[in-house]
Amino acid sequence: MDLNTVTEIARPQTREQLPAWSAGDAWLGGGTWLFSEPQTHLRRLIDLTELKWPALTLSETDLSIAATCTVAELGALACPPQWQAAPLINQCCRAFLASFKVWKTATVGGNLCLSLPAGPMIALTAALNGVCTIWKADGSEQKINVADFVTGDRSNVLQAGDLLRQIDIPLSTLTGRATFRQISLTPQGRSAALLIGRLSADGALRLTVTASTARPVQLSFDAIPQADKLRDAILHRIPDALYHNDVHGKPAWRKHMTLRLAEQIRAELQGT
């Protein structure tokens, strides 16, 4: 879709060249959502591609995912065999149910910043204990867990002029066992519930609930719990008002599927 109210495109190459933020500005990464519907309030796009951030950077301790990394680039990552949780990457990429055109253009950072409950990159990076680095409009930096970055349906911690720079994934979270469950109301529909269970080296379980809830919810257990303890924890931690309600699923159904998928994850990780 043409954005016919836009009169300027800025193409900074360094952080120092980022223009001062003003009303009518928007960051341009992949643009798959930005160009999908009218944006009559926009006057200027700030193109992030000329910053040339490396899509994926591997260090001794972390996998850094640039906000401008595309879904296709992330999905093509060659993972070492010791990364038992590596299948989550492809599973979450495919939860987009998008065409190859969208895969090659949509960005990981854009998915987080749009902050839809069904955002699969939110689920992936939250489940892997991802930490966001935010370039604040005042020139400072902020680090925050992905699970805390998203605060609700299409809402997050970003203030005007803030820019998501990258998401850092601790390599230790990729070496443990992990299990993925996702369901949609229709075969090609948006995720109505997307849950990930991950075991750490000491046997602790971290369950990440997304899509069924307006924001990510994480539950931690010292060990794999019994079925009734897991169910009680979910009922206690997720109030009915937090379950998302739209055409892709009613809250009561999303709650039911959350409990069902969580039990499937528990049973699989326990080996039963």
Score class of each variant (00 low, 15 high):
M121C: 08
P87A: 06
H41A: 15
V131W: 11
E8Y: 12
A118R: 01
T258S: 12
S200D: 13
S59P: 03
V71H: 05
L205N: 05
N129T: 10
I183M: 04
M257A: 10
P54A: 09
A192W: 05
D240K: 06
Q142W: 14
I265A: 03
L63P: 10
L63V: 11
K101F: 06
A123I: 14
Q142H: 13
G139Y: 02
W83F: 11
T258E: 00
R266Y: 04
F149D: 02
L58R: 09
F180N: 01
Y243V: 12
P170S: 07
E141F: 06
L158N: 03
A241L: 14
P216L: 04
K104T: 05
F100E: 13
I65D: 00
T173G: 13
F180H: 02
L163Y: 15
C132Y: 06
S140R: 14
L88D: 15
I265M: 00
N145H: 10
S115A: 14
Q166P: 07
W83S: 02
D25S: 05
Q226E: 07
L164F: 02
A241R: 10
W21M: 11
W53V: 01
N156G: 13
R11D: 04
I234E: 04
A160L: 10
L18K: 12
G197F: 03
F96T: 12
M1A: 11
L97S: 09
A78E: 09
R177D: 12
Q188H: 13
D47H: 07
R266C: 11
S36E: 05
A204C: 15
A23L: 06
G139A: 08
V146L: 14
L242V: 07
V209D: 06
R43V: 09
L58F: 10
G130F: 12
S212K: 11
S64E: 12
S172K: 15
V108T: 03
A20Y: 04
C69S: 12
I65E: 00
L171F: 08
L3H: 02
E268K: 08
F180V: 04
R266N: 08
T179K: 08
H256F: 05
L174R: 07
S184R: 07
F180K: 09
D138W: 05
G110V: 01
V71A: 13
D25C: 10
F35Y: 07
T70V: 04
L56D: 02
P54D: 13
L194S: 03
I167W: 12
S184I: 00
G161P: 00
T107W: 02
L163Q: 01
I144M: 08
A178L: 14
R215P: 01
T210C: 15
V6L: 05
L207S: 06
Q226I: 10
V150P: 03
L42V: 09
R154S: 15
T7F: 11
W33T: 03
I89S: 03
P225M: 13
L259I: 14
I144T: 09
G197D: 01
W27T: 03
C113G: 00
L174K: 03
A193H: 04
A160Y: 10
A214Y: 09
R231T: 14
P251H: 06
S140T: 11
M1F: 01
T125G: 06
T61C: 02
P239A: 14
L219H: 04
V247S: 06
E263Y: 13
L230D: 03
A118S: 06
A95N: 06
R198M: 04
R260I: 02
L174D: 01
V157H: 05
A123P: 00
P239M: 15
P170V: 08
L185S: 11
